[in-house]
Design a protein around this nucleic acid. Structure first.
Lengths: 246, 246
DNA sequence: GATACTGTTACGGTGCGTGAGGGTTA
DNA sequence: GTAACCCTCACGCACCGTAACAGTAT
């Protein structure tokens, strides 16, 4: 019979851990002195402890260990581990990229975006002033009560000319009651890399450059998937690059 | 100005998270209505939120994020990530090995062992009965009051003959007062893979086989480093394979 | 008697998720 | 009026580490 301290030393865990396992009923000592409350463990219980520690090392939770080593448990734990491993890998990429490109840059974050219904004029215009004009026209055609809160510009890369074309859009909540000139389409759900800029040209350029650099550092992870989105939140601009994770 | 729900949707986090960040002072809303306690965020605060989320995605803790993106912070976070990545990789190996070799086998665990002083006869004997005999002799030569609680046998692999030789040992607490025939040596600190068996021959064989299989599945991680140890805890046998992590 | 154990209780840390129960806004 | 918001508690989770204070084994 061993007391906690020695049993802990032999088993390679802390006495505190053993007390905890006792408390939650995961590994009860063979005998507990009813007067002193001292815990006494038998040598055979080293086997039980080994099973627990082995499970812990495989990333199982204590309740999974308690349920015993069922195949399905192990499989779900494996999937969980794979996912968290991918996340950690990604974090490592991020951090190494940040260290490489300088710490103080514009922050770039990744987030999933749900699908949205938007209205647009259905045409792509080139040139800054024309985009502004098109936006004004669009807002005139979509009554305020059907508008959602999101509006901005989709920037298409014209494959032939190489010059970017803009397509202003507003989110809409209802699909009817619209002028015939506007076209309703769906912005598909997608994960985007995004950066913010205060609404001036230089800041916007810096944000674009930050995302471009961010993507250049991870060419193996992400590819651009679809037109870039420029969203307008009051005075703050949000630049989104849709990503296809690869 | 946005209320928490909409700000959360735009920023890609939950309203709960925003309330939490407010509570800990990480991201205070621009304005809080003193009567209703409603939180109101400005568009510019999306930039602050982006910095937080980007940091989180890099695996920084909230307090690290709060301290701002110092280079040293990022470097220590990177090291932390590398370590936890290695752990997770290892867990994944373990679990895949367990799935491959069958779930219900003898559990194998890894643990670090501190260095120990032991007494032995200084000779390696071959044959089960001879080992038993040598052990008896050793125990006769080491007085009980200097013995530690650990005793067992070191199994050396004789390179020439290929046949294993056993060397019984007992842990000692004092280095003096020993018969001249016994030799004091140090079992070095080492990480071991271990398995337990009830004290019969078949169970011991199964435990050996379990560790061998366990190591075969991970040839890239670990190599055998030194003589195997067989420890005797009452009726329970502990088999230890010293590992050199590679 | 000294020292090395052991006991219990309680709090802390990470980053929120999940209600419950009740006001507020459009 | 009625959704759809929002608020503040307060607890839960996973796995122990770390005191603090007091009794126990050798």
């Amino acid at each position: 019979m061993y007391r906690v301290g020695e049993f802990a030393r032999i088993g390679g865990v802390s006495a505190k851990t053993l007390r905890f396992y006792d408390e939650i009923g995961l590994l009860r000592p063979m005998r507990t002195d009813p007067v002193t409350r001292y815990r006494y463990y038998s040598a055979e219980q080293l086997i039980d402890l080994a099973r627990i520690v082995a499970g812990r090392d495989m990333g199982l939770s204590l309740s999974e260990i308690r349920r015993g080593g069922r195949r399905s448990t192990l499989e779900s734990a494996r999937d969980r581990l794979r996912r968290s491993l991918a996340l950690a890998q990604n974090s490592l990429h991020q951090i190494e990229a940040a260290l490489a490109t300088g710490v103080t840059g514009t922050p770039v974050m990744v987030k999933p975006r749900p699908a949205t219904h938007v209205a647009s004029l259905g045409e792509i215009v080139v040139g800054y002033d024309d985009v502004i004009e098109a936006e004004r026209e669009l807002l005139g055609l979509v009554p305020e009560r059907v508008r959602g809160t999101t509006r901005g510009v989709l920037w298409h890369q014209c494959a032939d000319t190489g010059s970017p074309g803009g397509e202003p859009f507003v989110e809409v909540r209802a699909m009817s009651g619209m002028d015939r000139a506007v076209e309703i389409k769906e912005l598909p759900a997608v994960t985007v890399a995004c950066a913010y800029a205060r609404d001036d040209y230089e800041a916007a350029e810096r944000a674009y450059e930050a995302i471009r650099r961010w993507m250049r550092v991870r060419p193996d992870c992400f590819q651009l998937a679809g037109p870039k989105r420029e969203l307008c939140h009051g005075r703050t601009l949000e630049i989104q690059f849709p990503l296809a994770s690869q």
